[in-house]
């Protein structure tokens, strides 16, 4: 049962992501990306990371893809971008090699059975376990991530905000807020 699910999910993911990468239509790319995210969430459930799967759905598919959609709306999405004919073979070769590298590097410890689990939680369902670990062992990264999200939010607001087109110091066109020390009548 698990095998079938895994293979279906993996084939779907690979196919959808290939569409994302190779398509020249922004809408298609984005849609396939969103769908791929959902399938990946399914993979998470398959592995047993329930909490992570839900977080993936909520954050990735819900928030990030929504953000991308708004971005797509903003830019002119109907225009087809012409891809420059760089050396595709080189690129594909690079990609293939990296894949092989990764697998080799990451499975070496697995094959050598060199891994030891550090934070082992028994009993408890997955969310409970996540909660236990997150707020004890990984508390500081959690807080730092929160601050980082805050910073990103502020950055996003500033960058995309309307009134941010002109600089703050030239906003008063009549120079009402200029401070001329003393001699105010001189103009």
């Amino acid at each position: 049962m698990e095998q079938i699910a895994f293979y279906i999910f993996s084939v779907l993911t690979i196919g959808l992501f290939l569409v994302t990468v190779l398509s020249s239509n922004v809408l298609y790319a984005m849609t396939s990306l969103a769908a791929g995210m959902v399938i990946i969430s399914g993979l998470f459930f398959l592995v047993g990371a329930d909490f992570l799967g839900v977080v993936q759905l909520v954050v990735y598919v819900g928030a990030i893809m929504a953000l991308y959609s708004f971005g797509m709306m903003f830019f002119d999405a109907t225009k087809d971008i012409k891809e420059k004919n760089t050396n595709s073979y080189l690129v594909f070769a690079l990609g293939g090699m990296i894949a092989v590298m990764f697998v080799v590097i990451f499975s070496a410890p697995v094959i050598g059975e060199n891994i030891q689990a550090t934070y082992f939680v028994t009993g408890a369902t997955n969310p409970q376990a996540v909660g236990l670990i997150l707020f004890t062992k990984y508390l500081i990264p959690f807080e730092v991530a929160a601050i980082m999200l805050l910073v990103a939010m502020i950055a996003g607001i500033i960058l995309a905000g309307k009134k941010m087109d002109d600089s703050l110091t030239t906003r008063d066109e009549n120079h009402e807020e200029d401070t001329t020390f003393g001699l105010k009548d001189e103009k």
């Binding site: 690079l94 990609g95 990296i98 590298m101 990764f102």
Partner: peptide, 10 residues
């Protein structure tokens, strides 16, 4: 960057 990454991993 990709090329460098491949080289280093190799």
């Amino acid at each position: 960057m990709g090329f460098g990454a491949v080289a280093l991993m190799l």
